[in-house]
């Protein structure tokens, strides 16, 4: 078991034939992901990486029965691509693209929600169910199968966290990089109950950062609904106010969105909060023993 994706998930790639799309699709296929085709307008009918290329998502879905799309479309066109996926009946769009205008994502997410399509990202490493299905750009070899679910706003902290969990002799069920933009798709609050219900997952790691209040919402939700142990790290305890730290959404405005505030809320919800990402692995081992 796992959440959202597994070895049987049929995946198409939007932006399939581009540089990034090609490189990462190859990597995903090598990991075992069931990529059934791709979409690049005006390249329909061609074959790329041994898979059919379609002009539209609608055609791709009709021909392949794909339910998930991995999106590598450039930022100026990404909202269009996401809305096209929603319109074509895709169930989950994993948006890797970095630098999408916030307004575009606002509209794209509203439309996706209306159509019942889930989204992950943008500006994220994607989702991986260990040893089954990788939809994204994470280094697959780090992710060994095991009982720990992981949700993270940061790509490299996902790798750091997963690696430590594996070093402790444990492993990952599914890891989801949700991205650090101001508007994102699935967040802690939607993913936590999925891990709660997943019998394979015994503990959950959540990695957050400064800015916004998703972690605060998550804390409330954990207190009321999550029985499995949760370990959390919030990046940016040493970040200055009013400065954007790399991610578009990682900014402390006024006194809101600080790491201290989020850590306190999570601790009050019974979460084991670590002060450095270097202690994630150890903390997971502790809560599981």
């Amino acid at each position: 078991m796992s959440i959202l994706v597994n070895k049987d998930t049929k995946v198409i790639v939007q932006g399939f034939t581009g540089g990034e799309g090609t490189f990462h699709s190859e990597q995903c296929m090598a990991y075992g992901t069931n990529i059934v085709g791709g979409v690049t307008p005006n390249k329909g009918g061609q074959t790329h990486l041994g898979k059919p290329v379609f002009n539209t998502v609608k055609e791709a879905v009709e021909a392949t029965g794909a339910t998930v799309s991995m999106v590598f479309v450039p930022p100026a066109f990404v909202a269009d691509a996401v809305m096209e996926a929603a319109d074509a009946g895709i169930e989950l769009a994993v948006i890797i693209t970095e630098g999408a205008p916030v307004k575009d994502m606002m509209y794209a997410k509203m439309y996706a929600t209306k159509k019942g399509m889930k989204t992950i990202g943008p500006n994220c490493p994607g989702i991986i169910t260990a040893e089954e299905c990788k939809i994204g750009i994470m280094p697959g070899n780090i992710f060994k199968k095991g009982p720990v679910g992981l949700i993270s706003k940061s790509g490299t902290l996902t790798y750091e966290g997963a690696n430590q969990v594996v070093q402790e002799g444990l492993g990952i069920s599914t890891a989801v990089g949700i991205g650090g933009d101001p508007i994102i798709g699935l967040s802690y609050k939607q993913l936590l109950p999925m891990f709660e219900e997943d019998p394979e997952t015994k503990a959950i790691v959540m990695i957050g950062e400064i800015g916004g209040d998703l972690e605060i919402q998550a804390a409330k939700f954990i207190k009321e609904n999550i029985t499995k142990p949760v370990v959390a790290f919030i990046a940016g305890q040493t970040a200055p106010k009013g400065k954007r730290m790399g991610h578009a959404g990682a900014i402390v405005s006024g006194s809101a969105g600080t790491a201290a505030e989020k850590m306190a809320a999570l601790e009050a919800a019974g979460v084991k909060v670590v002060k450095t990402p270097a202690e994630i692995g150890k903390a997971v081992k502790e809560v599981l023993s």
Partner: peptide
């Protein structure tokens, strides 16, 4: 590169915004 100057003594060069903040936090730790 994404760079923000701070007040301390240890220069940091990291890949990824989250890990970069996590590295600052670990130095502080």
């Amino acid at each position: 590169l994404s760079y923000v100057s701070l007040d301390g003594e240890i220069g940091c060069m990291v890949n990824g915004a989250g890990l970069a903040m996590g590295t600052m936090d670990t130095i502080n730790f």
